[in-house]
C-alpha cells in the first residue's frame, strides 16, 4: 500500500474506513463476543428469558471435551472436510485447465458449471438426497446399468456409506468455487514462458509440473485454505440430506452445534461447540494470513 502524503488526507481516509469498521464491529465482533460469553454461562430453554444467567466457568468446555460423542464427530468433520476438498480441488483444477483452451461455447460451458455454486445448498442437498435414494435413486440406476453393482446401495441410511453420500453432494457443490479461483490464477500466466519451454523441448507434463504449478502456487494454497474454512462450517447441506444421521454418522461440528442449540435448546452447549469450531478455523486462517496474506503482489 502506498503511504498517504499528509496528515489531512489521512484524516479523510479514516472516515472512509468508518462504515466498514462499524459493520465489522456490529456483525462480526459482537456475535463472537456474545457467543464466547454464552459459552461461559448455562443458558437453556428454561432460563433464556431470565435477566441474569448463571456463569459456570469452563464447565461447558469440560463437558464438550469429555463428551463420548466428540471423537466420532471430530473424525466425521475431518473425513467430510478432507474428502470434499481433495476431490473438489482435483476436479476443479482439471476443469480450470480444460477451460484454458479455446473452443466453441467455452464461456457458455463455464457459466453452466457456475450453476452449482449459485444454487442453495438446501436445493442441492434435496436433489442429491433423491439421486442417492436406495430404491429409485439415479446413482444406483447408473451404477447397475454400467455393471459396477448388482444390488442397490442404501447410500444415506447406512452408517458406512452415509458420509460418502454427503461428501459427493458437497464435492459437486464446491467444484465451481475451486475452478473459479484456479481459473483466475491460470489467466495471469505469461504465454511467453510456455513458448520458450516448448522450444526447449519440455513436454506437456513437464510444463504442467515445472511451470504451471510453481507459478500458481499462491492460488493453489489460497484455494485449499479457503476450501478448508468453507467446508469446516458446512451445515445446511448435511442437515437437509441426513439430519446428521443415521445416529451420528454424518454429524459434523456445525451439525452438532445446531442440534444442541436449536433442537435440544442447550444454547450454551451449542455456543461452546461453535467456539471450538471457530478456534479450529481461526488457526487455519492465521496460517493462511501468515504464509500468504502479505505476498499478494
Amino acid at each position: 500500500m502506498k503511504h498517504i502524503g499528509n496528515a489531512k488526507a489521512q484524516r479523510i481516509y479514516i472516515w472512509f474506513l468508518l462504515p466498514g469498521l462499524v459493520y465489522v464491529l456490529l456483525f462480526v465482533v459482537y456475535p463472537i463476543v456474545f457467543n464466547v460469553q454464552l459459552s461461559f454461562q448455562n443458558v437453556t430453554a428454561l432460563n433464556i428469558r431470565a435477566p441474569r444467567k448463571p456463569y459456570i466457568g469452563l464447565d461447558n468446555y469440560v463437558q464438550v471435551f469429555t463428551d463420548p460423542e466428540l471423537p466420532g464427530i471430530l473424525l466425521n468433520t475431518l473425513a467430510f472436510t478432507i474428502g470434499s476438498i481433495a476431490f473438489q480441488f482435483a476436479i476443479g483444477f482439471a476443469i480450470a485447465l480444460f477451460l484454458q483452451k479455446q473452443f466453441p461455447l467455452r464461456d457458455l460451458f463455464r457459466s453452466l458449471i457456475m450453476i452449482g455454486w449459485v444454487l442453495s445448498p438446501i436445493v442441492v442437498g434435496t436433489i442429491w438426497r433423491w439421486m442417492l435414494n436406495s430404491d429409485f435413486g439415479l446413482l444406483n440406476f447408473i451404477l447397475q446399468w454400467i455393471g459396477v453393482i448388482d444390488t442397490n446401495i442404501s447410500w444415506l441410511p447406512q452408517p458406512k456409506t452415509a458420509m460418502t453420500g454427503v461428501v459427493m453432494a458437497n464435492i459437486w457443490l464446491g467444484v465451481p468455487f475451486n475452478m473459479m479461483l484456479l481459473t483466475g490464477g491460470l489467466a495471469n500466466l505469461p504465454e511467453s514462458v510456455y513458448e520458450s519451454a516448448t522450444i526447449d523441448g519440455a513436454n506437456r507434463f513437464q510444463q504442467f509440473f515445472k511451470i504451471t504449478i510453481p507459478l500458481i502456487r499462491q492460488t493453489i494454497a489460497a484455494t485449499i485454505m479457503l476450501g478448508f474454512i468453507y467446508t469446516l462450517k458446512v451445515f445446511d447441506l448435511i442437515w437437509v440430506m441426513t439430519n446428521g444421521g443415521p445416529v451420528n454418522a454424518t454429524t459434523t461440528m456445525p451439525v452438532w452445534s445446531y442440534r444442541a442449540s436449536f433442537v435440544l435448546f442447550k444454547f450454551s452447549q451449542g455456543a461452546t461447540i461453535s467456539n471450538v469450531l471457530f478456534a479450529m478455523t481461526l488457526v487455519l486462517a492465521i496460517v493462511y494470513i501468515y504464509f500468504f496474506g502479505n505476498k499478494e503482489d
Partner: peptide, 15 residues
Amino acid sequence: TELVQKGYASPEVIN
C-alpha cells in the same frame, strides 16, 4: 426393525 431388515420397508425410512 423386522420390517426394515426383511425389506418390507425401505432402509430409507430412517431418512
